[in-house]
């Protein structure tokens, strides 16, 4: 899984940390992604957070490597993300 394929890859089960956000309350949230909808990520840490993809920048940890990505690129239902990117 590299930065290029992450966009169309599975986010559920990855460790995520929110680095930047337009709303300061979201910054610093850390935990595992347990579910995903079109516009939000559901993260389980100390408690369950629902985070909008549009407003945040997320750092994913994939086998000890860290990948920073803008949440705006992840918008779309999990199965639709597969198809969408390849057309461009």
């Amino acid at each position: 899984m590299t930065k290029k394929t992450l966009i169309s890859h599975e986010l559920i089960g990855l460790k995520a940390k929110i680095v930047r956000s337009s709303h300061p309350g979201f910054v610093g949230i850390e935990g595992y992604v347990i579910d995903e909808t079109k516009n939000t990520l559901i993260i389980l840490g100390e408690k369950v957070w629902i985070v909008p993809k549009k407003e945040v920048e997320i750092e994913f940890e994939i086998d000890h490597k860290k990948i920073l990505i803008k949440g705006k690129e992840l918008i779309g239902r999990p199965e639709m993300r597969l198809k969408k990117r390849w057309k461009r």
């Binding site: 559920i12 995903e36 239902r77 999990p78 199965e79 639709m80 597969l82 198809k83």
Partner: peptide, 10 residues
């Protein structure tokens, strides 16, 4: 459910 949706799309 998500897995099956992915399978159908691809």
């Amino acid at each position: 459910e998500i897995g099956l949706a992915v399978q159908q799309k691809a």
